[in-house]
Design a protein around this nucleic acid. Structure first.
Lengths: 113, 113
DNA sequence: TAAATTGTTAAGCATATGCTTAACTATCAT
DNA sequence: ATGATAGTTAAGCATATGCTTAACAATTTA
């Protein structure tokens, strides 16, 4: 539980917007320029740049400018942070439900209220 | 890609706040009342209720009121939605990186720029 | 060099978020 | 019935988000 938490905040926040998820899905097919990312989106270029900034701050995407073109690509490790938190919770939650199931089974002799 | 997406938005948004994650972590240990959830949090009860509302809307938490006490519990399946999206992306992303690695290896004969 | 392409910055604006306090309701205990 | 407990609702407020349009800058390309 480090300052790591702020990055988790930013990662989940970045993922919470369908436009940003769409951008990530596009980048799954390979690197893209800002304009390419913007093309399918129903908004101005500056708006796309702002979404891109959120993705960069979260670490989910990195970019590099060459000439006048900025190329964007995904950063798989960043997604790992969110994945780890969720997987850990899921494990604990299902364990808890299992124990609850056992408890209910053990007390099934009488009757359910 | 159904209306499912709105729920994904809500789920990731719910997870993007450290207070809400803390509430979820508390609920991992078992059901709790609203007051119990609020006790460790440095904010008013109404503020906690608002966070709870976000968690409920996302489906991550369900509640039930008995007498004057509202009991809250986690809903593992809801977390599965976020987990699935992330896991799918991670798989695709690492496949892409593998292909990229292969490509780089194949062209390693000459030299890297 | 002039024009087109690609991206960036700044300002403004409407709405959403995350809190607060105050007032209120419902239930339980005495 | 009185008071304490648990939760709820409403209003207000500061800040953050998600866009927009209007300049502006840096590269190509012609």
């Amino acid at each position: 539980m480090l300052n790591n938490l702020d990055l988790l905040d930013q990662t989940f926040h970045a993922l919470a917007d369908p436009v940003r998820r769409q951008m990530l899905e596009r980048l799954t097919d390979g690197p893209a320029s800002v304009s390419e990312l913007a093309k399918p989106l129903p908004m101005s270029l500056p708006a796309v740049m702002q979404h891109l900034a959120v993705l960069e701050e979260s670490g989910l995407v990195t970019t590099k400018k060459v000439g006048r073109v900025r190329t964007c690509q995904i950063e798989p490790d960043a997604l790992g942070r969110a994945e780890d938190w969720i997987n850990e919770r899921r494990t604990l939650w299902s364990q808890r439900l299992d124990r609850l199931g056992d408890f209910l089974a053990e007390n099934e002799t009488g009757g359910q209220q």
